[in-house]
């Protein structure tokens, strides 16, 4: 209570609205920090979807069957769609998509670090769909209740569409595990490389998370990093075992008392190294996006010029 006393009346009213589980909508008054915090989180989420097109998009031309190719195309297209839903949600906060893209290009805005790892074999497409999308969904399901209306609605749409993503990934892994030895090795190798980065996707431990406390208070975030990570581990370990994959963590064990899996320490140095730009593909991922955006400039200019000409023509007729 003493906390709320120090708030200006607007903020107090805002916080009580949040506490009452009322959604915040675009035109509502909101604290500037709430707005900035949301822009940071939503745009990071949007960028992740769009940059996430790349590691999987790499395999569209090499998918081993036509059915897998079509599925992968649909999936990568969905990522672009989800990026768009999220940019649209961010734009309701009074920032343009161009500004958001600019922040991505200058490094002011981040994207999920996991996409800085390469997709080396076909099994990586399975691992990404299964692990990375599962991790994303665990997080996104909790965000369906986020306090900002447009973000929550975007999450509902995204969750609905993404359920097929993790299924197709798991299905790839399952097919590999039922195949030849070299396929099983391929699947295990992919799990070995994607497991820890997937755990890192949930961010630092709650105690060390810079934005967590305020975000939870504003109900931008609904569940803590560690809670979500635990849920992911519990699900994924079971799924791995069901198809004969070995989770690459010697400390992994079922804790009867907690009703959860205990797991080993995350290598946060590795996390920091990749976040700060020295993952295997950081430069390529960003360069790819910058190049496409720059190369597209003449197209966007042509559209604007075309529309301007028509506006003039219409004005003359009028």
């Amino acid at each position: 209570m003493s906390d709320n006393m120090s708030l200006v009346p607007n903020e107090q009213k805002f916080q009580s609205r949040i506490d009452a589980e009322e959604k915040v909508e675009p035109k509502d008054w909101m604290p500037e920090k709430y707005r900035q915090n949301l822009i940071r989180q939503i745009s990071q989420h949007a960028h992740s979807e769009v940059i996430g097109e790349q590691p999987e998009g790499n395999w569209i031309s090499r998918a081993p069957t036509l059915e897998r190719k079509a599925i992968l195309m649909a999936k990568v297209q969905d990522e672009a769609g989800h990026g768009l839903y999220l940019y649209a949600a961010a734009e309701t906060l009074g920032i343009t998509r161009d500004e958001l893209i600019d922040r991505l290009h200058t490094g002011a805005s981040k994207y999920a670090s996991i996409f800085n790892y390469p997709s080396l074999t076909w099994a990586d497409i399975g691992a990404i769909g299964w692990l990375v999308d599962s991790a994303a969904i665990v997080n996104q399901v909790s965000l369906q209740n986020t306090s900002y209306g447009p973000y929550a609605r975007a999450m509902v749409k995204i969750c609905k569409e993404e359920s097929f993503h993790q299924r197709q990934g798991y299905n790839i892994m399952m097919t590999l595990m039922q195949g030849a030895e070299l396929q099983r090795d391929m699947a295990q190798d992919a799990l070995n490389r994607w497991w820890w980065p997937s755990l890192m996707m949930f961010g630092p431990h709650d105690a060390e998370s810079a934005h967590s406390a305020q975000s939870m208070k504003w109900k931008i975030k609904r569940r803590s990093n560690d809670e979500l990570r635990q849920q992911f581990v519990d699900q994924a370990v079971q799924q791995a075992q069901a198809i004969g994959l070995v989770v690459p963590d010697p400390d992994l064990s079922w804790n009867e008392e907690r009703g959860h899996y205990d797991f080993g320490a995350i290598d946060w140095q590795e996390f920091q190294r990749v976040v700060s730009g020295n993952g295997p593909c950081n430069r390529q991922r960003l360069a790819h996006h910058v190049e496409a955006h720059t190369e597209g400039a003449w197209v966007r200019e042509a559209m604007a010029a075309f529309e301007a000409k028509r506006r003039t023509a219409r004005a003359e007729v009028a």
Binding site: Q77, G81, L84, H288, H293
Partner: peptide
């Protein structure tokens, strides 16, 4: 056409070309 995925001039067109 699929080579354009993640390379289109803007996001709406990325999605449309993918279709």
């Amino acid at each position: 056409l699929s080579e354009w995925m993640s390379r289109a001039p803007f996001l709406e067109e990325d999605i449309a070309l993918s279709n």
